[in-house]
Each structure stands twice: as C-alpha cells, then as structure tokens.
Design a protein around this nucleic acid. Structure first.
Lengths: 145, 145
DNA sequence: TCTGAACGTCAGTAATACTGACGATCAGAG
DNA sequence: CTCTGATCGTCAGTATTACTGACGTTCAGA
C-alpha cells in the first residue's frame, strides 16, 4: 500500500503542502498589494484588530492574533515609528500600554483593507464564491477545535 | 465601513490567519506523531516523494515539493545521516545525485504514513469527511492557478 | 506590607528559506 | 573538437519569524 504509485501519493495532495503553499501565496499577494502603503501582511492583521473594537492593550492584540506578546513588541515598534499607531499608558493599569490607530493609521488601514481584498480575491479567483465561503468556514471549524 | 464593529472585521476571519494557523496546527500534530520515528513534518514530504514514483534527482524532489534546491541539501544531509535515504551519482548525468530510500527508509516511511494520517485525522476531526474533501479540492484548485 | 502574578521589554537562540557564488558537468554552436 | 552558456549540487552569508528566559515595573490579594 505504501509502495504503490497511485496519484494519492503525490505530495501535492498532502494537506500540509496545500495549507503551506496557499498561505505562502496569499502572503506574497498581500505583501505586494500593501507595499505602497509601507506595511506588510503581518502589520495588516494588527491594524485590523485595532481598527475595530475597543482600544486594546498590547497583550490583548497579540492574543487576538494568536501571536506571542514578545513578537508584538517589534511589530508595534515598527508601526509606531511609521506614525500608524500610538502607545499610551493605560490609566487604569500602568503595566499596560493601550495601542490605538492614529488618524494617519486609520487612513492607512482603509486603503489597506481595499488592497487586501484585491489580494484575497486574486487568490480565490480560481474557485467559486461558494467554495471560497466553504473554505473559510471549514478552516474556522478546524481552529475552533 | 472600515470603522464599524461588525463581526466581519474579526481578525480570525482573515483568510491569511486561518491558513497560517491551520498549517501551524497540522505541523505541530504531525511533528508530534512522527517524533518517535526520528523525523519531522518536512522530512515526511520528502519521504513521500521518494516512496512513490521513479528515482529522482535532488532538484526533481525539490521541485515536486516546491522548495528551493538549496533547502533540499540540508534535508537530505539529515536523512542520509539517519540512514533513511542514500545519494548516488546519476550515471547518465554526473551533475546529478539520484536520491533513494534505503530499506530502513522504506520501513520508516511506512510507519510515518500511518502516523501522519493520524495527525491529519486529528486536525480534521471537527469537520465532516465531505468538508475535508472539499477543503483539499479547493486548496488544490487555488494552487493550480 | 508582602508575595505572587501580569505586562512590556530585551537578549539570545532556533528554525526556515532565501541570494549569490563556486566547481563540476553537460549540451549545443561553430 | 573546442568553446560557451547553462544546469546541478553545494556552501556561506543573510533575512525573517518566533520562541525562551530574564528583568523591572506595576498590580491584586493575603
């Protein structure tokens, strides 16, 4: 069984391969689409968290994105240097920094949102809208345990 | 529009987030399942290529996996050190190395194939078999352009 | 007031994959 | 047959990403 030459053994059928390269391609498309705004795909996730919902601490932002809090530091350093976000101490808990979009940051996000949609649409172009929705739904189900 | 608080702005709905974390989880599950065999998820892809089909050069293996040829060198160094694969010069083109599984390598692959399936099944457990098939099909369609 | 925990930060590290270069080898032009 | 450009495997160097462990500051509860 393991030694046959059936098409099922093609490495491109490995789920790990499919997920990895779909992610790589979307990242590349997104990075290209966002480049003129001075941000990249990982910055965009952070902007999206900040653009909706309550102002949040660094840790809360990191948790929403499932990234390590030490990783978030460098991302925010970068975005703050670019004038896209600001950190200010949380008056109710001075261990925390509250992170917010600046006005410029909100404009950047608005443009980025459109650019991201273009990139995602480009990736999803080969499949039907229904299949794209189903893909999203299935992945979400997997990650919700 | 960009300032509303609709659920659609949840970063967990970002396709990039979903693909990244689905891949991370599968990799973690696979690495754990393969650990007792002395290999990991990236080794498994290479073994799968070698276990089916014609003997192939290093470059051909790399291309089937869409990895860089310079990356393949270290993977094969490692697998060769473990006695799982062997390199031999291609008699018809001495620039090339033909890479093959050893007998031990084939036994390792057989065990790894079963372990991998367990890991993949664990990831896919929350969704129906039909949804899992659809997921695979959609991802494949995306990557075929 | 003390003790343990949370938060942001930073240094160090590991994994991954890339670029550019090199020698050896091949294939085709002349 | 020779020369030239390309291919293949290799290696050094680099960039990215994300982690661990530690630290000082601050908080909450005993």
């Amino acid at each position: 069984m393991s030694t046959d030459n059936s098409a099922a053994a093609d490495p491109r059928d490995l789920l790990g391969y499919l997920l990895k390269h779909a992610h790589l391609r979307l990242t590349a498309l997104t990075d290209a689409a966002l480049e003129h705004l001075g941000i990249d795909s990982k910055d965009f996730g952070t902007l999206r968290v900040l653009a909706h919902g309550e102002p949040a601490s660094q840790l809360q932002v990191a948790q929403k994105l499932s990234v390590d809090r030490t990783t978030m530091v460098a991302v925010l350093d970068d975005l703050e240097r670019k004038g896209i976000v600001v950190r200010r101490p949380d008056p109710t808990d001075r261990r925390r920094n509250i992170v917010e979009l600046t006005d410029q940051g909100r404009r950047t996000f608005d443009a980025a949102e459109a650019a991201y949609q273009d990139a995602e649409n480009a990736l999803l172009a080969p499949v039907s809208p229904g299949a794209a929705d189903q893909l999203r739904r299935t992945l979400r189900d997997l990650l919700e345990h």
